[in-house]
């Protein structure tokens, strides 16, 4: 469903992504790991349509369409969901109003009538139970005054409401205690369908104990330097990122000496 081919992007003339290629098939869970500053969040933001980086080359195809040509709201309506690392507060806008607007935009895109108030509230109740979110949270303004953990659970709740085809979770595990982590991960697992895919961006192996990936990629200095099965995450946890860095630098040197 998602094919990223040699994607290069820069911010203010500084190249952040130096040629990323990634192929996500329906039903797969991919994990992207890597040290701080390697470009993980930039990649997530570009996929979601935040216009802050210049695309210098490469392409992204999403169900055969050129993703980079689609407006952010269209990507969302077409099933692409980003779980924010730092969810944004919108004071005075109730979660109910926010979600209702979002859901009905998605329905309109699919040629469906808006949900009635009662159907909408019923749907909200179901999804709240599914992701074990405190029911009072949805009575408040969007993320306003939420704790870090509550914000992350709220992201998963929104994901449950919107039922994306491709969910990109950007460090959803950061700042969570083990109970919250379990709730968030259970939510993601329950929402997983045969035809939907997930990209989990994380620093740590521990989230991957709960959300088991099919493929693990290591992103370092704007490049995917290693791709393997779930055992790679364990190896990283054990050895840290240093060996990856060394390996990558070696590749870089040999590449400089013998340009392909």
């Amino acid at each position: 469903m998602l094919v990223i081919d040699n994607l290069k992007a820069s911010i203010n003339g500084k190249q952040i992504l130096k040629g990323i290629s990634l192929h996500v098939k329906e039903g797969e869970v991919h994990a992207i790991m890597g040290p701080n500053g390697s470009g993980k969040s930039t990649l997530a933001a570009i996929l979601a349509g935040r216009e802050f980086a210049a695309i210098d080359g490469g392409s992204v195809s999403y169900f055969g369409r050129n993703l980079l040509d689609m407006a952010p709201e269209e990507r969302s309506r077409d099933g692409l969901f980003l779980g924010f690392q730092y969810p944004i507060e919108i004071p005075g806008v109730s979660m109910v109003n926010f979600m209702k607007t979002a859901i009905n935009e998605h329905r309109k895109y699919r040629g469906l009538e808006p949900l009635s108030a009662s159907d909408f509230l019923k749907l909200m109740r179901e999804k709240k139970e599914l992701v074990e979110i405190d029911s009072t949270l949805t009575n408040r303004s969007v993320n306003e005054g939420f704790s870090g953990g509550e914000k992350k659970k709220n992201e998963i709740f929104q994901m449950a409401m919107l039922e994306p085809r491709l969910a990109i979770l950007d460090e959803t595990d950061s700042g969570l205690d083990i109970d919250a982590l379990r709730i968030v991960a259970n939510g993601v697992n329950k929402l997983k369908r045969k035809d939907s895919s997930v990209i989990v961006i994380t620093h740590y192996q521990r989230l991957l104990d709960f959300i088991v990936p099919d493929v693990v990629h290591v992103l370092y200095d704007g490049r995917i330097v290693k791709t393997a099965g779930k055992e790679l995450a364990l190896e990283l946890e054990e050895k840290g990122y240093d060996w990856i860095k060394k390996e990558a630098e070696k590749t870089e040197e040999s590449w400089r000496v013998n340009p392909q």
Binding site: A48, G49, E73, I90, G92, V93, M99, T101, E105, Q158
Partner: peptide
């Protein structure tokens, strides 16, 4: 954030201002 949930910029401004 609103865009990413499927809400157009115009509607987002309406939501935010009314909030």
């Amino acid at each position: 954030y609103c865009n990413q949930r499927g809400i157009s910029t115009e509607d987002a401004i309406g939501l935010i201002v009314n909030g």
